[in-house]
Design a binder for these strands. Structure first.
Lengths: 204, 204
DNA sequence: CCTTGTGAAGTGGTTCACAGCT
DNA sequence: AGCTGTGAACCACTTCACAAGG
């Protein structure tokens, strides 16, 4: 099943005006930008939580999606790399709201170590493994320069991290059981450039 | 065709050690993390740029991918929203390297307007439309809070922007001809949480 | 002989359309 | 009567396997 779509549905439900306590697949699909049939297939995978002739109870559906995504617990995470991006991520309110808690921020630069970012003290990357282990983080964000990312990923994996969100442009080599999602700004822009280019010269 | 994969191949080619002037589909596929057959299909779409029995000439292939993605020109872009993330993006070196040039940075906060970010002066969002128009930007990055994103997107579209990279968590409503790519940190983390959750309770 | 390029076969995901419930 | 849940049909993408060509 396409997990990212569940996340989109969840956001749509959370952005609904307060009074709305039920919604049809047509309306929710419209909001989420997918076809009604696809939405119903996706939701039916969670179980039969709709009511025929009526629609979906928004509160109930929200809970079921959060449960499916594993958002009913709080997941501790660490952020490695306290450059501009790392700091932006550390400050990001959305994390806590969605059930993620930043339990450590790290950098290799001795000048940065000891600084405070959003209430946390920046620790040296050497302290990464024991900190991850002790604080039970199995989720990590890599926001280092590309050269450093692979070594960080290996340290994280060795310390028990099984899910990595990678903002470095490198493709990481990790053990089989570790999941990596890569967010690459250059790739995103290049895809958009492709469309601009296409629009400018449709025939080739 | 899957455009993001071309971007990945391009990066792999660019990360190759200097001496390497040819590469086989097996080796490049390994680096890119795809199957050799898929890589060959993808590349054959660009034309017959490989040499049977030998492989691909790295320099030539790099150029062909860049040409296909529209990276042989330089694309002016604007960034709206100079919070932590917007600033991080404005400082990001990768943009210029890959053929993107930031020609304007904007914020709605009067306290921020006039500050310098990476050599550019922050302008008020009211100045967005004429600036986009005059500087020929058809590509924009939205890094505003979610509440502001829709209005910014509409202003951008009206001013001639046809490709938007959206970091706000909102789903944007835009005219048919405008392409939007959404990067949502919460969604990425939620997908990773799903895998953690699965690993913890495989049977449900 | 080695590696690409590509039809053919296979796979997974999307849409259709209607039966089944409320 | 209305809307969900879902098998069946459909479509796009992936892999296979081998012919074509340096």
């Amino acid at each position: 099943m396409a997990v990212p779509r569940l996340s989109v549905y969840l956001r749509c439900l959370e952005d609904l005006p307060p009074g709305v306590d039920r919604i049809s697949s047509d309306d929710l699909a419209e909001l989420a930008g997918v076809s009604p049939a696809k939405l119903r297939k996706d939701l039916s995978y969670l179980g039969s939580y709709g009511v025929r002739g009526v629609g979906y109870r928004t509160e109930h559906l929200r809970y079921q999606i959060r449960r499916e995504l594993g958002l009913t617990k709080e997941w501790p995470l660490v952020i490695v790399g306290m450059g501009n991006l790392g700091r932006a991520l550390a400050h990001y309110e959305g994390f806590r709201q969605q059930g993620f808690r930043v339990v450590g921020v790290f950098d290799s630069d001795p000048d940065k170590v000891g600084d405070r970012v959003d209430g946390l003290v920046i620790e040296p990357v050497g302290a990464l493994a024991p900190a991850v282990w002790e604080r039970g983080a199995r989720l990590a964000v890599i926001a280092t320069p590309p050269e450093a990312a692979q070594a960080v990923a290996e340290a994280l994996a060795a310390a028990g991290v099984t899910s990595i969100l990678n903002f470095a442009s490198t493709l990481l080599r990790v053990p089989e059981h570790v999941h990596v999602r890569r967010v690459d700004f250059s790739t995103e822009l290049q895809v958009l450039a492709f469309y601009l280019h296409q629009a400018a010269a449709p025939a080739g």
